[in-house]
Design a protein around this nucleic acid. Structure first.
Length: 114
DNA sequence: GCCCTACATCAAC
DNA sequence: GTTGATGTAGGGC
């Protein structure tokens, strides 16, 4: 990488974790926050909202802990958010009414780190 | 350099 | 359904 984006170590760490999420799997902001050593899922949302690495970073695989798809492309509960649902459906994630139906679809970092 | 505000959230009542 | 909290980033002075 000759040209690096003007991001902080924190943002870089978040994107690295998101890129580790395999297709057909999703994770939550809280789980992602813990994976990067942060106790605030809001910081994750801020980093993903900027997402200078999109679509290199599958930020659409990050949903809320409430099993809702959360936001996408700088919007929350908008037209872009609806597109996020379609992306997950295309990857084999069972989403209905903007909510995740299969809880086993969650991706566990600890399980992979094992 | 310091202060304040916003956030794609989470948890509690 | 509303409120408080938690950490990071950005803008103003």
């Amino acid at each position: 990488m000759t040209t690096q984006e003007p991001i902080t170590a924190f943002q870089r760490r978040v994107y690295e974790r998101v890129k580790e999420i395999p297709p057909g799997r999703v994770t939550t902001y809280a789980a992602l926050a813990r994976a990067v050593g942060c106790a605030s899922p809001q910081a994750i949302g801020q980093a993903l909202r900027r997402n200078p690495f999109a679509p290199r970073v599958p930020c659409h695989r990050v949903i809320r802990s409430d099993r809702s798809i959360g936001g996408f492309n700088g919007q929350e509960g908008g037209a872009e958010t609806s597109r996020k649902e379609a992306l997950l459906l295309a990857e084999g994630v069972d989403i209905r009414g903007g909510r995740l139906h299969d809880a086993h679809t969650f991706f566990d970092y600890q399980q992979e780190a094992g």
